[in-house]
Design a protein around this nucleic acid. Structure first.
Lengths: 351, 351
DNA sequence: GTTAGCACTCAACAGTGGAGAGTGCTAACA
DNA sequence: TGTTAGCACTCTCCACTGTTGAGTGCTAAC
């Protein structure tokens, strides 16, 4: 890539300095600030010349003639890819995260909700957690149970102790043995299969084997399908949106409202979570790199958690483009490990 | 009550006018405005005198010397109790509400979520919906089902087609017939009872009857208890918080943030919903009448829906004290009927 | 190639002075 | 005795002004 070399080392150092300072202060950064802060042995005038170059190359911009410089999206991109140094989580930070995860939760749902709130309060940014997509998980068993004369219950059990059920209402008199047959047939046909690739048997084929009416069989099969659909559907958790109001970029009420309303739209959050799933490891989307229009002033850092191929979900952190990228990236990576460990623990307790 | 008569008719009319205008305009109301608006045949000077009286009595206040008057909490209270005229929902408004409810939902949860979003977008205020408290509902049946050699599934069915289940992991070899016995015993003991008043049998008593080990019986009973707990627990839905940012009272970012953060606290929302349940029909809490400190600038209108005694939930609408009380009250009452009808429909389809 | 110095630009802030809305009080009126 | 017109007064709001300070770009000297 040609543009990678368009910056010499000194320019890179200066760009890094500018962005570091700006992330901290949220104020346009002037040449003097950089000259004093970094002992580069350079005067402010020199820096000024370099800054003019950086501006021409598009890495920084000037809000108005006599102001300091502000990083552009391109500048942040370069910073994230080449300049930013890994943020070592301090010991007490690690403790804080571990401790918050300590009160063990029994349910996966609770886990995700908890993680969401921990991450958002730790980083100070709104956070999304998407529960794992389970289309690769295996079906353990299907049961049809008679509740009373008018109702059957269809129960689907998936590995990891996930259970879904659905009530079937009917008006027939049904023999217990036929229900047992139905359960057996269903089990032999779909248990052990992956959720995503179950092909349901035809109702007709089952009539002779089970002795149940066609209508009832259809209802039962539908119920199974609905159970599968509900296991496959993912939940999305969102926490800490109001954190955004703490940042000066949203001190304008109009802008603040726009952003908050955006993050309250379910579609937006879902599509964010879903697009995170497409990239394998960590991804940083800066400002205008986001597809959604009104997100041009936001950055999103996402990663995927879970275990190879099956059952992977996503975490995402949303903030202004002026975001503490290094801290966010390292916290999200750390949390990812914690989640993975916790998921294994919960599943092991069940299996 | 003595204070009910401390206002003569003219004062009442003037107070009502002031509040009507202020609710609409959000600006302090001057004497001239009232004199012109209402053809009381009174000059502004007269109104001025009356307003001075109303201020002394605490119904209105003056933000500063040369400004108009603003209703106090006491003023709003009197307005809500005695002055406000019922808002007739216009035909197209009724249509809008009905239409929004039309796409029939199958699940109660979806219904509550939908209602929450409809009400908040219709009124323009944040809205809470609490799902019904089911401690009065009757247990229809309990089933224990063997999933594989190591897992039992406990299933609890409650009237209204509500099902909860819980997996029990064990290391024993269990005979099918013992499980059937357990199911039968459990059913004979607790089915038909109210959720809230189930008394669980002792594990010891069941050992001889069922032939299962004590440890396993304890696990099963715990699972049943957990299922009951989960049916009884209520969900709370919240929608439209950012609506608040549309009102001038929250154009101050500090105040806005305070309020938004408040409404994002789960405890606060839960306690609001819960306290709504205590009052039988409709309740309006104005500003400082709220227990929670930082809610002094908010009013809450709540009502209870559901059917006599059993399965009642709550709807609540939150807004600034300067709220369109009459419209809010009538919409909430109308929605309450719609919900009740819809709940009946869903339940009937299942039974 | 680096830097000191200088002229220039622009946002931010505080002060100023009308304009307008609204009040309370007084005196006159029905 | 209740009502009202009129007047002096108060206070916010807004537009305008000049000043300050931070920061730049350019030039000339090192």
């Amino acid at each position: 890539m040609a543009w990678e070399n368009e910056l010499n080392d000194r320019k890179k150092t200066i760009l890094k300095s500018i962005i570091d300072v700006y992330i901290q202060s949220a104020q346009p950064v002037g040449s003097r600030t950089i000259a004093r802060r970094h002992d580069l042995g350079l005067g402010s005038a020199t820096i000024r010349n370099e800054m003019a170059d950086l501006e021409e190359l598009g890495y920084i911009t000037q809000p108005h003639t006599s102001a300091g410089r502000v990083p552009s999206d391109k500048g942040y991109r370069f910073y994230v890819d080449h300049l930013m140094q890994a943020h070592q989580l301090a010991n007490d930070e690690i403790m804080r995260l571990k401790q918050a995860m300590e009160d063990s939760v029994e349910e996966l749902n609770q886990l995700f909700k908890r993680v969401c709130s921990i991450v958002s309060s730790f980083t100070g940014y709104p956070t999304i957690v998407m529960s794992p997509q389970l289309s690769e998980a295996l079906i353990k068993s299907v049961q049809v149970v008679a509740i009373d004369e008018k109702h059957l219950l269809v129960v689907l059990v998936v590995e990891g102790g996930i259970v879904r059920n659905r009530l079937v209402k009917h008006d027939e008199t049904v023999k217990e043995e036929n229900i047992v047959r139905m359960t057996n047939v269903l089990n032999s046909m779909i248990s052990g299969m992956k959720l995503g690739s179950v092909s349901m048997p035809m109702a007709l084929e089952l009539m002779t084997v089970t002795g149940l009416s066609g209508a009832l069989i259809v209802q039962i099969l539908d119920a199974v399908k609905e159970c599968i659909r509900r296991v496959e559907s993912t939940d999305v958790y969102l926490d800490g949106i109001t954190n955004l109001l703490n940042y000066p970029e949203f001190s304008d009420l109009i802008k603040a409202r726009e952003v908050l309303e955006l993050l309250n739209e379910e579609d937006v959050i879902n599509s964010l979570a879903r697009s995170a799933m497409r990239k394998p490891s960590i991804e940083v989307r800066i400002g205008s790199e986001n597809e959604i229009g009104p997100m041009k002033e936001l950055s999103v850092v996402t990663t995927v958690y879970g275990h190879k191929g099956r059952s992977t979900g996503a975490i995402g952190i949303i903030g202004p483009t002026r975001m503490t990228y290094s801290k966010v990236v390292s916290s999200i990576l750390y949390m990812k490990d914690l989640i993975n460990r916790e998921i294994l623990r919960i599943l092991n307790e069940r299996e």
